[in-house]
Structure formats: C-alpha cells, structure tokens
Design a protein around this nucleic acid. Structure first.
Lengths: 345, 345
DNA sequence: TTGAAAGCGCTAACAA
DNA sequence: TTGTTAGCGCTTTCAA
C-alpha cells in the first residue's frame, strides 16, 4: 500500500487511521511504528516519542484482524460446552479466562446443548476463523472431529472424561475418588446400607461416581446390593423419583449418595415430605457443590467439583500448546475433589 | 498473489489450502470460488460442481480472518459483564447467543469484576480487533467510553439501567414496577409494616427497586418509615445483617422485601435461627428468581428478573444496528418482570 | 458467466 | 537504527 493514497482516504478523519497514517505523521516508516508497538525490534527514543505522539493525536488503534492475517494468530480461543446456563460451566469458563485473559486471549463461548451436529458445526467454524485453541466439553464427540482441528494445527483440550479420545490433552475431575471418600465417610459412621441415585446411564460422569461408591463398599467388605443403585436424571425431579424408589424398598437405605447436587436436593424434598429427619434418619450426600448446595435446608454435605480449577488447568495446558512451550505427547490431568461436610450427612 | 507459487507451498498438503488452490484444481478463478461460496454472484452449474468437488477434495475451509480484513466484518460480538459466575449473567449470555448464533455471530465474554480500568481496556480491545458489536453491563462506565466504540462505528447496547448514558440502545428490567407489584401483594394481605433490605447504595438496580416499593406504599396511603429501609450488600450475609437490624427495631416489620434473592436467602437464615415462622410471622420476598430461589425452604416468593429475555432483546437490537436494518435514534427497551408466588410470602 | 487485478492493514524478511 | 518490499487469503470492482 501507498502511504499517500492511504492518507487521502483516512488521514482526513473520514475513517479509522491506519499504521501508515501514523507513520506519515511521525515521519517514520510503518515498520518503525509496528516495532514501537510490538517491541520486537529496537527503536530509537526519538522515533518512539514521535510515534507515540502521532498515535495519540490520531487516536490510532492497530487493527488486530490485519495482524492476525499476517501472523496467523487470532488471540482467540473457543470454549465449547453444552450450556452456559448449567451452573457448573460458568465456573469453568471463569477459570479458563482468568489464565487466558492476562495472556491476551479472548474466549468465545459456544453452547451445543449436547447436540452432536451443533458440536461439529462449531468445531468446523473454529478452523475456519481460525481460533488459536479450543477447550471442549463434549458428551459424545468422536475423535474424528478433533482430527480436523489438530490437522489445522489448532490445539484442543478436552474437558471431562466423556469421550474415548486419546488425541488431545485432557482435564478431568477425580470423580471416582470423590465418591469413594464420601462413601467412606458414611461407612465410618457405621452406616452400611447406602443407596446411590445415579443420573442418566452412560452420559456424563455418573459411571465414575458409581465406581467410586463401589470401590469404597468393596474395601470395607460391604456387599454391593444392586437394588440400592437407581438410575434417573441429573435433575431435582430425578432426585425425587430416585429416593422415592429407594424408600419403597423392603429394606430402605439409611443414607444416599447422589450423582449430583440437583438430585440430592430432590432427595431432600422427599425426605421433608415424608417427615424424615436428615441426617438422623436419612443422610444425604450430593456432588458438585453448586451455589444452591449451601442454601438448602439442611445445607448439603457434598463433594466439591472444582470447576474453577479445571478451567484454569485447561487454560494452562492450552496456552502451553499455543505458545509451543510444550510440544510433548498428550497429557491427562486429574483434578482432585474435596469433601465438604455440612449438615445433611 | 500468484496461484502457482501458492500451490508450491500449500497444494502439496503442507499447509492449509487457500482459495487459489481450490481455483487451480477446479480450473476456475478464485473469484468464481469465492462466489460459489458466498452466492453473491451467479455461477454456472458446471463451475459450481467443479468448485465444490475441489473444495471437498482439498478439505478447504475459507479463512475468515482474511475475509474479515476485506469486508470489515468479523462476525464476532462482545458481551462485557462483571462476572459470568454471577448466576444472572449466564442466562443473559444464553439469550444473546440464541439470537446472535443463528445469524452467524460468535460472542466473546469478558469479565470485568466491576473494575473500571478493566472495562476500559476491554472496550479498547474491542475497537482494535474489531468486533461487530458490543453488549455491556457496566456499573460505572461513563458515556465517554462508549464514544470510542461508537466513533469506530461499532454499535453498543447497554444492559441495565446503571449508567447515565444516552448514547446507545439500552435494555433493562422494569425493576420499579416489579417491586411495586410485590409490595402491593403484601399490602393486599393487610400487611403495612413492610421492610426493605437494599444492596449497596447507588450501585446496581437497588435504587429502582426501592422506588417501586415507595410507589406502592404511597399509592396505598401507607406512611414511608425510613427506619424500615436498610442498606447492606447484595449477598447472603447482607441479608443476615439486614434482617437482624430490622428485627431489632422497637416495632419490627411483618414482611421484608429484599433487593435480590441472595439477600432474601440470608433473611430466611435469620428467620430460621430465631424460630420465626415464614411466612406466618414474617413474609419474605426476593428479587431475580435465581436457581436457588426454588430450592430453599420455604421456596422463595420473588420477582422474576427475565435475564434470558434481556439477552435476546440485546441481541435483536444489536443485530439490527449491525445489519443497518435500523439506523434511527437510540432505543430504550424495558422488559417487564413477573411476580411469582411460592411459599415465603 | 467469468477473470484480472487491486487492495483490506498489518508484519517481517532483507537490505542498508 | 531504519526503510523497502512482499505478501497473509480473501472480496470486489472493473472489464470482458
């Protein structure tokens, strides 16, 4: 481009000034302007001052799109999740952004509602833009989807333990150890008749959580009674249905573990309706520690699913790939849970 | 650029193919490829077929960054909010994305934590990128900030009623009518001694909510007792402090309105601690209808702050500006609340 | 119906 | 320490 013709259209204040307008006004080349801004090459103090003055006089803002086209860096990452409205994900998003933001990255958030086609469309869109990296919490995405991204040189980190992918970095909660700890807590109180209300089978983290429950039972030599495991939805109503079912057993449990807090809150509803004292007659334990967990009556004893930590870790892994600080084989990071005792158990 | 040299580096599968690679393979010009994709010019069926074949053979994905540089459209908008972790904003975000997504826009979400400097930095970043539009929920941004964006031709819609800006479109909740309705509900039960626990003074929507409370009192001819209005934080602890203060009055209220649900939940805590029957001895009303509102005991009677609707409306206003379907003067849209009776009042 | 050519606004070899 | 020049990969006049 020719600086003079650029000035004709932009310098007169008609449109946004470009780097050549700044260069012209400062009496240096565009290269020097670029370098005073990026610091990637030494610039004399005299030039620096003139450039800075020109910039503020013109109100110049570098156009990132143009820079991206040259550098192949957009400083944008994508977070692809089922639904930002699910209270777990905002925490993750925040953790991610708290590490990516300071590094200069903006994050676009995409809701898939668990829809496979939507997921694929977003993934394609990300290579098209392109973004510099993606974090995806996918319930059913096949490895093939990731190939497209990886082939395009876009790092991916997978959030959660739900796909049978082994091609990308992965960050997940230690669900299994988490429920095992909760189960042992109950067992240590001498309670052995412990029910488990699971969410939808094969979807989400339920399987691992059930596994932890079984682990603890086994390690304490308590027989696993299949009647004590019921499967429902990851919702409050699911908890109502699940506990109702358990309570109708000839020998009902003295405690229930729930696959998530929503289920536990539904269970609390049933206990209240039936006049059951919690935790004296029935202990209830949740999972996740959503905001509401501390607000219900009695406050829920639960396993903290550290979304913020997960988000941060995703950010760190992604960043190390983007900057190529790390170029090794795939990493798999398991974030520990924390058991928190309130009043329901 | 020269198609042949392009092929040398990219056609052999080394990097992502470009539009000229597709053109070469299809035996047409890049122009024709561009037009088959955009549909902005008629293309013969024969060309179309060849182009499409070449695209899928090469796995070509158009580079949006390059397109953006030419067209000055990034198909990206920003949502700038205090904190995505605050349960109100995910709903707004979802509403926004549900209207912008289908139109081809991705949204970046930025957390300011209410920090003025962070807000300004993000705003600057948005003109630099640039994004096609921004929705901002700012607690203290001055109109001057918006000027930068508006000068750069980037439409802004303001979420909420918190800045004294009159330069951009604006979408807000009808807080005043909402609390007025809640107050009247109490008044209609013959309760006249009604307290109000406000959040931080001059920040957020508290002022309008107090105004609605006063409106209703006045219209029923009930004297406004300043002792009955206490100011605290928008938190659960704020509710604890606020109600404690009110209950220590010589003539304590029979009902309290709270500036948000978190405050109301704190108030519930106090009532429970003191053995006060809710709602018989003390009626409690919240505002917002967060997820937890229906989960506490007793479930909260509250005013629904329709975040999703707000988000959608922001999206519609923004879109109409971006596409220039609407070029008129600033619009101000007030979204009605809905009063929802549960058990706490 | 098609193509050639000129940029969009930057960055980065390369040369001085 | 600085500037010249050649693109990044598209879109869109303009001319055919």
């Amino acid at each position: 481009m020719n600086g003079t013709s650029g000035t004709v259209t932009r310098g007169r204040g008609r449109l946004r000034p470009g780097i050549t307008d700044v260069a012209d006004l400062a009496g240096v080349s565009a290269t020097t302007v670029s370098h005073t801004l990026s610091g990637r090459r030494a610039v004399s103090e005299a030039s620096r001052v003139k450039v800075l003055a020109a910039i503020s006089e013109l109100g110049y803002r570098p156009n990132q799109t143009a820079a991206s086209l040259r550098t192949q860096r957009t400083y944008t990452v994508a977070l692809i999740i089922p639904d930002i409205t699910n209270p777990y994900y905002p925490t993750v998003a925040r953790g991610l952004q708290d590490v990516l933001g300071p590094a200069g990255y903006l994050s676009v958030i995409c809701n898939t509602d668990g829809d496979h086609d939507v997921e694929r469309d977003y993934l394609e869109q990300m290579v098209s833009r392109p973004v510099d990296g993606v974090v995806i919490a996918a319930f059913r995405t096949e490895p093939a989807q990731f190939k497209t991204l990886l082939d395009a040189g876009i790092p991916v980190v997978m959030l959660g333990d739900t796909s049978d992918t082994d091609v990308s970095d992965q960050v997940m909660t230690d669900d299994r150890t988490g429920t095992a700890e909760a189960t042992r807590y109950l067992l240590d109180q001498g309670i052995t008749r412990i029910g488990f209300i699971d969410g939808e089978f094969g979807v989400g983290p339920g399987d691992q959580r059930v596994a932890g429950y079984h682990d603890a039972l086994l390690s304490y030599g308590v027989r696993i009674d299949p009647d004590l495991l019921v499967t429902t939805d990851y919702t409050r109503q699911g908890g109502v249905d699940g506990l109702t079912c358990l309570l109708n057993l000839p020998d009902p449990p003295r405690a229930v573990l729930c696959a998530n807090d929503l289920i536990a809150i539904g269970a609390l509803d049933v206990a209240r309706d039936r006049g059951l004292q919690v935790p004296r007659q029935l202990a209830i334990v949740g999972f996740d520690d959503i905001e509401a967990a501390a607000m219900v009556t009695p406050p829920l004893t639960t396993v903290v699913n550290p979304g913020y930590e997960l988000g941060r870790t995703c950010g760190q892994l992604l960043l190390s790939r983007i900057t190529e600080d790390f170029t090794g084989p795939r990493r798999q990071i398991v974030i520990p849970t924390r058991f928190i005792t309130r009043s329901s158990a």
